[in-house]
Structures are given as structure tokens and as C-alpha cells.
Design a protein around this nucleic acid. Structure first.
Length: 421
RNA sequence: GGAGGAGUGCCCGAGUGGCUAAAGGGGACGGACUGUAAAUCCGUUGGCUAUGCCUACGUUGGUUCGAAUCCAACCUCCUCCA
């Protein structure tokens, strides 16, 4: 296995050297072969994402950053949104028997996700990044045809050797045919992309390893030399899976999480994670990353601000990042207020009479009235900078400050400026 | 195929008829302390139009004034034997 973050002086390709240096490489099907391929000229690489939600989240950022680096170094990224595979539904939570998504919903999700992807990779021009939906080809297959063309290329014997399958079987857990076949679909994706766009590299999370390897092998049987690369599974210094907060996932789409909220997430990084995150999620030179990581004590806070601003710039753009930085400073330097509205609500709602609890829930700071009530009774909620501990408090037009706004905070870190219009 | 054991809240796990919205721990959130960090300490941790009501201990029925707890069937997992 390759050690992430170690300098890779023996490598011929700049791209691989950078990815290794950044800590974006976990496993590779054949590192030397990939190095050769990358050093011989521009190639096309792809990373696939589920279209089950309307936004990607920070967990998707590592493969996306990998795509971004590859593009920066002259290669062409393809982002595949799994319109076809999402239709089948992720089978791993089978107990819920949740309804499989409808095509219309998936199409809406894809449109929404596209906007985030456009920021991370450059999709302009004939050599720009591509965004494709695997439903394009997966929907076209007919069952018998699929079995004959691809089913014949896979042996159950081989598929059983994959950890994802083996661990299930060893634990005597049920593994449905659907799940079992999922890796075939992903393998076919890789082959199709190879045929259609000369794609030669697939990048994914480490849980995708088996699926990726299957694609590489399917390609080989078709006379194609394909490569697979996985990014590490990212955990925080606290050992938990990264990217979840009280409010849920840290979304990339501004409608799901405001750029300021996004900035705050990075600003609150634990000391121990700062260096790792700067390396993985920013494009600062490694020397600068090292300098920043070595800051001690309270000085590290500056590094955290730089981290937050850099990542926010990549995901939301420089204006949003600067504005978030300013807001953070204003808010935490003193008794400052939020500068820009973070939420908008119709004025009519206020006229109808709006309960404080209702407002806290509407802003996403609590999942239910009960939770909001506990926060209020615990003295965590401030309205216009005054603690309100009366859960029955109602908000009226009299609470509005300048510009029809009011500020509301929950705890020290979650703040909103609500504009009524 | 046979025998036995298990399924509890976000996770782990106690509970074998009323005192159980369910011990304890983890996580998460809030408070204190700090540097918007960590560690530590304290509090909270099903929902609601709320001194009440509803939902919840694998599923569906049953016994009982009363069930997570007893019974039956089913589903799933584990262990041992074949």
C-alpha cells in the first residue's frame, strides 16, 4: 500500500506526484503503470457519484479534488452522475425498504448537483470536463443482451473474492442478487466511458475498490488498459466519519448549507486535523501548508481561517469566501452582528404570528419543536443578542431591527440573520 | 435438516408483568473553562396544538385491569450438531 503524504520522488508523472503529496491516494491498481500512462500525455479520468440527494457533501470532496488536480495538470475529468444506478437504489440499507427514487427526482438531483460540480472542475470548451449520466447506456440494455454480453465476462468465483462480498457471506448476512450485480453495473460504466470518451482511470472512495477493480478487469478482457485509484477514507482526529454535524451533512450546494455555514464548518476544524485538511482540501503550496500546520496554540486559528476561506473559495467562489471570512471575524471578534442575511422568510409569516420554537426549527437549528424547546430552556437561544428562555415567546414585527431583519443564534457558533420580505 | 440462543432508543447495552419514554456507556447538542481547538466538569438527548395526549423494545396476533417483559405464528441473525 502507498503511504499518503510521502514525497514520491521516483515518479515520472507530475499528476501522481501531486496526488500522493496531497494525501489523495490510498490504493492503486498498478501505480507504475498509471505513472507511465500519466507521464505520456493527457488522459481522461472519471469519478462517479450517486444522485440520491440534491446536493453532494464534503465526503465527496476528495474524489472531486482529485479530478480538479488532474485537470489542473492537463488531464480531462469526467464526472458521472449515477442516474442509472440510483434508479436501482443503494441496496445496503435493505431493512428500511425505502422507496427507490423516481426518475424525475433523480433528474432534478442531477441538475442541482451539476451546479456544484461546475465550480470544482472547468466544463467549458472542447477539452473541458464532462458530466455524464450513466442512465444513457444502462437504460438501453435489455436483460438477456446484458447477461450475454457482460454476464459472461464475470465469474461468480471471482466476484466472491471481493471483500464487500466475502465479509457479508462470512457473516452469513444476506446478499441480494441486486447488490451482487451492482459491481457489474459499475464495471460496465467504466468500459462504456472507455469506449465513448477514452477514459482510462477511475477514482473513487476506498469502499469502491472492488467495483473499480472489476471495471479494470472488464476493460482488460476487451483489450483496454484501465487504471483504478482510491482516495482514503477520511476520519477526523476524533475518529468519527467526517462531514456530519448536528444539522446533518455538510452540503456543497448553497441552498442546502449557506456558504457561511460551510465556512464555519472548516473554521471549527480540530487542531489535529488542520494540516491534513489543508493538504487535502486546498491548493496551497505544500511549503505553505507545512508552515501553517506548525503554528502553535491560538495562532493555529489563523491557519483554520485560511483553510476555511480556501475551501469555500473552491466550492462557492472567492466573493462568498471573503464575505464568510468577514462575517466570521465580525461575529467572533466582539459583539458583532452577522453582516449578510443567511435566511429569508416571508413577512406574511411574521404577521401570522411566529413562535420562537417554530423559528428555530425553520432555520434548521433544531429538528423538532421539542429540541428547540430544550435549547431555549437551556439558555442557548439568543434573539437580537439577548438570551430568551421563554419557550412560548412569540416573534412579532416589533422584534425586527433595521432592514426588516432579526438575528438569532443557537449556542456560540450557530448564528442566523433572518430577513423578512 | 436437527437442537439451543438472540433481536431494546442514533450506536453499544441493562431490563423477565405495573415504580419504564425504558439503567449504564458512547456519540451528539447546550452550559462553564478556553483559542469558534483539545481535555475536564455540569446539563440535555421520542413527538405533539403539552400538567394532557400519541408513538416506541424484530413483525403480526393473543393472554391480562395492565406487556419490552407471558403465549403463538412469522421474519432475521448467532452458536452447536448433521
Amino acid at each position: 500500500m502507498i503511504e499518503a503524504g510521502k514525497p514520491a520522488s521516483k515518479l515520472k508523472s507530475e499528476a501522481l506526484a501531486v496526488l500522493l503529496e496531497r494525501g489523495l491516494v490510498h490504493q492503486c491498481t498498478d501505480i507504475e503503470a498509471l505513472d507511465n500512462t500519466l507521464s505520456q500525455g493527457a488522459i481522461t479520468a472519471y469519478a462517479g457519484f450517486d444522485a440520491t440527494a440534491a446536493s453532494l457533501h464534503v465526503g465527496h470532496l476528495m474524489p472531486l479534488m482529485t479530478m480538479r488536480w488532474l485537470q489542473k495538470l492537463g488531464h480531462r475529468p469526467i464526472v458521472v452522475l449515477g442516474g442509472g444506478t440510483s434508479l436501482v437504489g443503494d441496496p445496503s440499507f435493505r431493512k428500511d425498504a425505502r422507496p427507490m427514487l423516481e426518475e424525475r427526482q433523480i433528474a432534478a438531483n442531477i441538475a442541482s448537483i451539476r451546479r456544484s460540480v461546475e465550480r470544482l472542475v472547468d466544463m467549458d470548451g472542447p477539452d473541458g470536463a464532462l458530466l455524464v449520466d450513466n442512465a444513457e447506456w444502462l437504460n438501453e440494455f435489455r436483460f438477456l443482451e446484458f447477461l450475454r454480453d457482460y454476464g459472461s465476462q464475470f465469474t461468480v468465483n471471482r466476484m466472491m473474492t471481493f471483500d464487500s462480498v466475502k465479509s457479508r457471506l462470512e457473516a452469513q448476512m444476506p446478499l441480494t442478487v441486486l447488490e451482487f450485480c451492482y459491481m457489474m453495473l459499475q464495471a460496465v460504466d467504466f468500459l462504456e466511458l472507455s469506449k465513448r470518451h477514452e477514459c482510462r482511470l477511475q477514482v473513487g472512495g476506498s469502499d469502491q475498490w472492488g467495483n473499480i477493480v472489476n471495471g479494470v478487469e472488464l476493460g482488460r478482457r476487451d483489450g483496454r488498459k484501465l487504471h483504478g485509484l482510491t482516495v482514503p477514507l477520511l476520519t477526523t482526529a476524533g475518529g468519527s466519519k467526517m462531514g456530519k454535524t448536528a444539522a446533518g451533512a455538510v452540503w456543497l450546494h448553497p441552498e442546502h448549507l449557506s456558504p457561511f455555514g460551510f465556512w464555519q464548518f472548516w473554521r471549527n476544524t480540530a487542531d489535529a486535523d488542520v494540516g491534513k485538511f489543508l493538504r487535502l482540501f486546498t491548493e496551497l503550496p505544500i511549503k505553505e501548508v507545512e508552515r501553517l500546520s506548525e503554528l502553535q496554540g491560538a495562532e493555529l486559528n489563523e491557519a483554520k481561517k485560511i483553510l476555511a476561506t480556501q475551501v469555500t473559495t473552491i466550492v462557492h467562489g472567492p466573493e462568498e469566501a471573503l464575505s464568510a471570512l468577514r462575517q466570521g471575524d465580525a461575529l467572533f471578534a466582539g459583539e458583532g452582528d452577522i453582516l449578510e442575511p443567511t435566511h429569508k422568510l416571508p413577512l406574511a409569516r411574521l404577521a401570522e404570528g411566529l413562535g420562537l420554537l417554530e423559528l428555530v426549527v425553520a432555520l434548521g437549528f433544531a429538528g423538532s419543536n421539542g429540541e428547540a424547546r430544550r435549547l431555549v430552556e437551556g439558555g442557548a437561544v439568543r434573539l437580537n443578542n439577548h438570551i430568551i428562555d421563554d419557550a412560548r415567546r412569540r416573534i412579532g414585527t416589533g422584534d425586527l431591527g433595521a432592514n426588516e431583519r432579526l438575528s438569532l443564534s443557537v449556542g456560540k457558533r450557530r448564528k442566523a440573520l433572518v430577513e423578512f420580505e
